[in-house]
């Protein structure tokens, strides 16, 4: 989502806050409640921990981020607390934590792992292909805790301690094992993308 594009159409490859942020608005408290409930349901996080990350008293700010994806513009919602991006959401999709948040609380998303060869593609923003996940260096959750398609996952890398990206499963994990071809996990945000470059909004 936050891929760096050298876009021929707009000729503006790099992100600049002045033009790409469509607006910042405080979030209504009723909506905040809904987001909080959704986050608690979607992430494996205790209410107390969420409270520490995002205290109830602190208002969430909704930043509309215009992302250039190939030839069209897409809006991604970034929710910030005190200017620090915490939660991202694309359209109506699931809520993702930002990578920095995931690094601090690595257990909140289910894990998948890619082998070493895939890391550099991932850091270039490519979606993760099934073979990279099913190979020896990769990791998929065991069959009893299989993930369905459309789950937000933390992407870890072979031999590395911390997550390298956050993605959305395109296939169920069992299906990935079976098909073992094409895109397994779409990448939402990864180390070194525009969102990563931005420490605060």
């Amino acid at each position: 989502m936050f891929k760096k594009f050298a876009d021929t159409w707009t000729d503006l490859g790099r992100f600049s806050p002045a033009t790409d942020i469509a607006g910042q608005t405080p979030v209504k408290s009723s909506v905040q409640r809904a987001i909080r409930a959704a986050v608690l349901a979607q992430w494996k996080i205790e209410p107390e921990t969420l409270e520490a990350i995002w205290p109830k008293k602190e208002g969430l700010v909704h930043v509309k981020w215009c992302v250039r994806a190939q030839r069209q513009r897409e809006h991604v919602s970034v929710y910030t607390v005190h200017g620090e991006p915490l939660i991202i959401q694309h359209f109506d999709g699931p809520y993702y934590p930002t990578l920095r948040l995931l690094h601090k609380y690595p257990y909140i998303l289910p894990k998948v792992g890619v082998d070493r060869g895939a890391i550099r593609f991932l850091l270039g923003g490519a979606p993760m292909m099934c073979p990279g996940l099913t190979s020896k260096g990769g990791y998929l959750p065991p069959p009893e805790s299989a993930l369905p398609a459309g789950t937000a996952v933390a992407i870890h890398a072979e031999g590395k301690e911390h997550a390298v990206g956050i993605g959305l499963t395109k296939l169920g994990t069992e299906e990935m094992r079976r098909v073992n071809k094409d895109v397994g996990v779409e990448v939402a945000t990864y180390l070194g993308d525009d969102l990563w470059a931005l420490k605060s909004l």
Binding site: E46, K57, Y105, E161, L191
Partner: peptide, 26 residues
């Protein structure tokens, strides 16, 4: 902040490279 109920899980203290901003392993 937050109620003193069960303690929130402390965040992982993580070091980022000051040159390239990645975790040093990357």
């Amino acid at each position: 902040e937050g109620p003193p109920a069960p303690d929130p899980v402390p965040p992982v203290q993580l070091l980022y490279c000051s040159v390239c901003s990645f975790p040093p392993e990357y």
